[in-house]
């Protein structure tokens, strides 16, 4: 997902200063605005991961609601607060008295958090195993739907979950997994013919 950095702060010196520091590391487009309302000109943004920097005074639930309303449906929005002092900083805030390297690290951490994580591993459900087995045997989504009496839509959603749980994306990779886990009778089928 492409990212866009939006810095909203009433002081130009802070907007531009932060921009100068961040653009060295983050090669995304930046939008610098003095007021939240000015975001209206950008209501066409879509399919983006928006990192919105708000001055402390602008980080209100009202403003967040406004931004969410304007951009939340089409984009992924994440906030960072720009404070003056580094006391009591939370993970999603930076302070203008901080060194540039620390500000950059905080931003990196925040971006990192939004990446989908694979670590909530859980075993495959029985249904997912059925689907995986049929995928490994080379069946199409349509065939799988017919065999299991479920909709194609459901098959696709099972497949998405399987891939997320196992960390394997390709069909041949899933096939190898199925064979390793004895989900396929390799007595009668040559496993290498399936991969």
């Amino acid at each position: 997902m492409d990212k866009r950095f939006i810095i909203i702060h009433p002081f130009e010196v802070i907007r531009k200063g932060l921009w100068a520091i961040l653009r060295e590391t983050f090669h995304h487009e930046f939008i610098l605005l003095p007021r939240v309302e000015a975001l209206k000109d950008y209501s066409g943004l879509q399919q983006l991961h928006l990192l919105v920097f708000l001055s402390e005074s602008l980080r209100t639930s009202e403003n967040e609601k406004f931004i969410h309303h304007l951009l939340g449906a089409e984009n992924k929005v994440q906030y960072l607060t720009i404070k003056h002092l580094a006391d009591n900083l939370t993970a999603d805030s930076i302070a203008i008295e901080q060194a540039a390297t620390i500000i950059i690290d905080t931003v990196k951490c925040q971006l990192e958090q939004l990446k989908p994580q694979n670590n909530q591993f859980s075993d495959l459900s029985e249904r997912e195993k059925d689907v995986l087995q049929l995928v490994a045997l080379g069946h199409s989504n349509k065939e799988i739907a017919e065999k299991l009496f479920i909709s194609i839509h459901t098959v696709i959603s099972h497949r998405k979950n399987i891939t997320e749980k196992l960390g394997i994306k390709s069909i041949s990779g899933l096939t190898v997994y199925a064979i390793l886990n004895k989900m396929i009778d390799t007595e009668h089928i040559d496993p290498t013919s399936l991969i």
Binding site: I168, S172, G173, Y177, L180, N181
Partner: peptide
């Protein structure tokens, strides 16, 4: 995408699932 995915899978299967 295909070639990128498969080499990742190869690696991940060895790391996570191979006895």
């Amino acid at each position: 995408t295909n070639v990128d995915q498969k080499i990742y899978d190869l690696k991940n299967i060895v790391i996570k699932y191979l006895e």
